[in-house]
């Protein structure tokens, strides 16, 4: 999953417990490592991340 228009603040990377997020020009969530805890969604100051629940 890639987040466009990301401001690049790095908050999601800092709170991600599994190291599933990388930050380059935009945020990229590596799905295999993602445990869908939703922390990145909560911390994003601009509300750009939505974790889709497939369970």
């Amino acid at each position: 999953m890639k987040i466009k228009n990301c401001y690049g603040c790095g908050g999601c990377v800092a709170v991600c417990p599994t190291g599933a997020i990388t930050l380059e020009s935009e945020v990229e969530i590596i799905t295999e490592k993602c445990i869908k805890c939703g922390k990145c969604e909560l911390v994003c100051p601009a509300g750009l991340i939505t974790i889709e629940n497939e369970r």
Partner: peptide
């Protein structure tokens, strides 16, 4: 381990 607890981070705009 640099992972920060959600409660320990200030989300800023």
């Amino acid at each position: 381990d640099t992972t920060i607890n959600l409660a320990d981070i200030g989300s800023c705009f």
